[in-house]
């Protein structure tokens, strides 16, 4: 695209207004299949109870495009030099960093929630990741919860890294529901700049995935792909094994030229053996690649 300014002499002393035009050669496009540039990454949490370094090894072996590092109790996941070394060794980029804001990671790095985010951002910048995944605060973190929306948007102003706030779910025990997050688990109620959608959490919330995706609109920046069957537990099944619209979401992302990453964050604790875990993660990647494409002509 080329811009040019043309000044036309008119009148005598007064300069003519500046005309700015945009010129563009329109090239015809003929692709029959649209495959977006979206990268498919493996969350290091997907190999639990195996270690972060096993996650890198498997992701490289199976052909994932990159890794999302879940910062948690594994010391390697907290150590930027160790992560950098793994990334170099396996020639696999770190595309995202999941901040340690889970219930089980309250004491990782530091106990101060804002310091966690500052460190996560620094880690992302240093490791070349463009996204930090963040959960909304727990209700009992009162001060943090009160300042969260404003604070996270202010932090986003200071960096190229995207803070993608993830949708959560109401906690349930028998017939009781507990609201554990503040502001709430439905992150689309707040003015966040970027969102992560997690389909396993959608399933646990018993809401419609596409209605949430609609509300996120162009601010949807990151995807945690996993399936769910609507049980009260947060299942993180291999995509295709539950009843969430995993395939339909991927097709929609392809159709809309999604610019973020798709990260497989699945539970393989019950895979049985290392060989079965590997086959589960291979299946998850194959499912994602198959559906992350759209015919250009279908309605």
């Amino acid at each position: 695209m080329r811009r040019r300014a043309i000044r036309k002499a008119a009148g005598s002393e007064r300069p003519a207004p500046l005309l700015r035009t945009t010129d563009r050669l329109v090239l015809p496009r003929h692709p029959a299949l649209h495959v977006p540039d979206t990268k498919v990454a493996l969350s290091t949490a997907s190999v639990y109870p195996e270690s972060t370094s096993i996650a890198f090894e498997l992701a490289a072996k199976l052909g994932y495009d990159g890794v999302e590092v879940m910062v948690w109790n594994d010391p390697v996941s907290q150590d930027l030099d160790a992560l950098r070394a793994l990334s170099d060794k396996h020639q696999l980029p770190i595309l995202a960093v999941h901040a340690p804001c889970l219930l089980i990671t309250q004491r990782v790095w530091t106990t101060d929630p804002w310091t966690k985010l500052v460190r996560a951002r620094a880690a992302a910048e240093k490791l070349g990741a463009d996204t930090v995944v963040v959960h909304p605060p727990f209700r009992w973190q009162r001060q943090y919860a009160r300042e969260f929306v404003r604070g996270i948007n202010r932090m986003a102003d200071e960096t190229e890294v995207r803070f993608a706030v993830e949708n959560m779910y109401p906690w349930r025990y028998r017939d009781r529901e507990m609201l554990a997050y503040a502001p709430g688990w439905d992150v689309t109620d707040e003015e966040y700049r970027h969102f992560t959608i997690d389909l396993s959490h959608v399933s646990t919330s018993r809401i419609d995935a596409f209605e949430m995706v609609d509300r996120m609109g162009a601010r949807l920046a990151h995807v945690h792909l996993a399936d769910g069957s609507g049980s009260g537990k947060d299942e993180h099944l291999i995509p295709g094994r539950g009843n969430q619209p995993c395939a339909e979401l991927l097709e929609r992302l392809a159709r809309t030229g999604f610019g973020g990453h798709v990260v497989l964050e699945v539970n393989t604790r019950r895979s049985g053996s290392p060989a079965e875990r590997e086959s589960d993660l291979a299946e998850a990647l194959a499912f994602t690649r198959l559906h992350l494409a759209s015919a250009t002509r279908v309605r």
């Binding site: 496009r29 692709p31 649209h34 995706v213 609609d214 996120m216 609109g217 162009a218 949807l220 159709r255 809309t256 030229g257 759209s294 250009t296 002509r297 279908v298 309605r299």
Partner: peptide, 19 residues
């Protein structure tokens, strides 16, 4: 586009919908 439809670069033939 604001509500999530494909950007202009995706070409003329993709379905874009405003709900």
């Amino acid at each position: 586009r604001m509500t999530g439809a494909a950007p202009a670069e995706a070409g003329l033939l993709v379905t874009r919908r405003l709900t």
